[in-house]
Amino acid sequence: MRVVLTGGGTGGHIYPALAIAEQLKADKPDTEFLYVGGKRGLENTIVPATGMRFETLDITGFRRSLSADNIKTVLRFLRGVQASSELLEKFKPDVVIGTGGYVCGPVVYAAHKLRIPTLIHEQNAIPGLTNRFLSRYVNTVAVSFDGTQDQFPKARRVMYSGNPRATTVHSADAAEGFRLLGLPQETPVVLVVGGSIGAKAINEAMLQMVPDIVRMPDVHFVYVTGKRYYEEAKRTLEEAPWVTPSNLHVLPYVERMPEVLAASTLVVSRAGASFLAEVTSLGIPAVLIPSPNVTNNHQEVNARALEEDGAAIVILERELGGESLFAAVEAVMRDEYLRTRMAERSAELGKPDSAVVIATELRKLAVRAQAIRRGVL
């Protein structure tokens, strides 16, 4: 099978696409891929590192208010459709997959016009603008959160698939996570992470609560500052009037996050959809601080979905501080019944077969399209 993947801007769009590719490759090693990304997104560094063929389009998103820039965006979209059509006609894919971001628009729309089977995947509980637009043209819309299927009323087919990143991390080795952290197996671990570049609000709250963690000496705290904030956090700890507790591990970044996640007892993080898919795939309780700086406040909606099912505690950023964060962490870590119940609810929300479900749907679309071309259907 020949497959075009498109998704860009943030890791939340890119990693699900790569997880789908990984599953398709595992099923059929001779599968060929082309990834089409934007010129400015993280895909420009992440995708080439995989060795996958990579092409880019010059595309930007619409402003939500009236703006002359939107005229330029329309022109870029039309040029993007033309460029995408040329790429697709040359590569001749059996199916095209879009996982979000502006670059998906022209690629998936061009595939629709060329009658190539298409699928889009929506990671968040509130769909992005691009996926809303594309939903009326594609063969299948796959959603990460069960119950959000009605967000796409004009779609031909909507299926609950979960997020394919869940499949990637589900088999992560907890023992290896403990080894990477230099900790004995079964050590209770609280992982505090704000993403690859970090989250200022989470960092500030974590630094405020550091003096309190000595009250939980049997719990090890792994504090991932993000590369942007590491030096500042290290300097704050060095200049503090108290000694940094021995049960605190401060890192700028974690290369092998799935293994560290698998070793974690509780996660404190933002509420990005892909990361939540990983957390629930492993059945980990969470304290979630959704970012308020995202479109449609979708991270809070993501977080509330876990909270309503008993898998997470949500702290809004305006309510976040060292005291509120420590109180939430302590409540979970000191109550084994609560922690076990949250872990069970998290695992029930997890969809570890997500990539398999999506790969199966893609093969069905490709086979049906081939049958139609041959006149069988």
Rank of each mutant, 00 (worst) to 15 (best):
residue 1 M to G: 07
residue 2 R to W: 03
residue 3 V to F: 04
residue 16 P to Y: 01
residue 21 A to D: 04
residue 22 E to Q: 15
residue 25 K to Q: 14
residue 27 D to C: 09
residue 28 K to P: 00
residue 30 D to G: 04
residue 31 T to M: 00
residue 32 E to K: 13
residue 34 L to F: 08
residue 37 G to V: 10
residue 37 G to P: 07
residue 41 G to H: 13
residue 45 T to R: 08
residue 48 P to K: 03
residue 49 A to T: 04
residue 58 D to L: 14
residue 59 I to R: 07
residue 63 R to N: 11
residue 72 K to V: 08
residue 73 T to M: 04
residue 76 R to H: 12
residue 94 D to F: 07
residue 95 V to Y: 10
residue 97 I to C: 03
residue 100 G to H: 00
residue 103 V to F: 09
residue 103 V to K: 12
residue 105 G to E: 00
residue 105 G to I: 02
residue 111 A to T: 04
residue 113 K to C: 06
residue 116 I to H: 01
residue 117 P to Q: 05
residue 122 E to D: 12
residue 124 N to E: 03
residue 125 A to W: 01
residue 125 A to P: 00
residue 126 I to D: 06
residue 126 I to Y: 08
residue 131 N to T: 07
residue 140 T to F: 10
residue 140 T to C: 08
residue 141 V to T: 05
residue 150 D to F: 10
residue 151 Q to H: 13
residue 152 F to A: 08
residue 155 A to Y: 07
residue 158 V to D: 12
residue 159 M to C: 09
residue 159 M to Q: 13
residue 161 S to L: 11
residue 167 T to K: 03
residue 179 R to A: 14
residue 180 L to E: 14
residue 180 L to W: 07
residue 181 L to E: 01
residue 181 L to C: 01
residue 183 L to S: 05
residue 185 Q to C: 03
residue 189 V to S: 05
residue 194 G to E: 04
residue 202 I to E: 10
residue 202 I to C: 09
residue 204 E to M: 12
residue 204 E to L: 14
residue 208 Q to C: 12
residue 210 V to D: 06
residue 211 P to I: 09
residue 212 D to G: 00
residue 214 V to M: 06
residue 216 M to R: 09
residue 216 M to N: 07
residue 217 P to E: 02
residue 220 H to C: 14
residue 221 F to W: 05
residue 221 F to G: 02
residue 229 Y to H: 15
residue 230 Y to W: 09
residue 230 Y to L: 02
residue 231 E to F: 12
residue 231 E to G: 09
residue 235 R to Q: 13
residue 238 E to K: 05
residue 239 E to A: 15
residue 242 W to N: 10
residue 243 V to F: 04
residue 248 L to V: 10
residue 253 Y to E: 07
residue 254 V to D: 14
residue 255 E to H: 09
residue 258 P to Y: 06
residue 259 E to G: 06
residue 261 L to F: 13
residue 262 A to S: 06
residue 263 A to L: 03
residue 272 G to S: 06
residue 275 F to E: 03
residue 275 F to T: 12
residue 276 L to Q: 03
residue 280 T to W: 12
residue 284 I to Y: 02
residue 285 P to F: 02
residue 291 S to M: 11
residue 292 P to A: 11
residue 295 T to S: 14
residue 297 N to H: 09
residue 298 H to W: 07
residue 298 H to S: 05
residue 299 Q to K: 08
residue 300 E to I: 15
residue 300 E to A: 09
residue 303 A to G: 10
residue 308 E to Y: 10
residue 312 A to P: 00
residue 313 I to G: 03
residue 316 L to F: 08
residue 316 L to N: 15
residue 320 L to T: 05
residue 320 L to Y: 08
residue 321 G to W: 12
residue 321 G to Y: 11
residue 324 S to E: 15
residue 325 L to P: 15
residue 325 L to F: 13
residue 325 L to M: 13
residue 327 A to T: 13
residue 328 A to V: 02
residue 329 V to K: 07
residue 333 M to N: 02
residue 339 R to I: 03
residue 340 T to P: 02
residue 343 A to V: 10
residue 346 S to E: 01
residue 356 V to S: 08
residue 363 R to C: 10
residue 364 K to Y: 09
residue 367 V to Y: 06
residue 368 R to A: 11
residue 372 I to W: 00
residue 376 V to W: 11
residue 376 V to G: 01
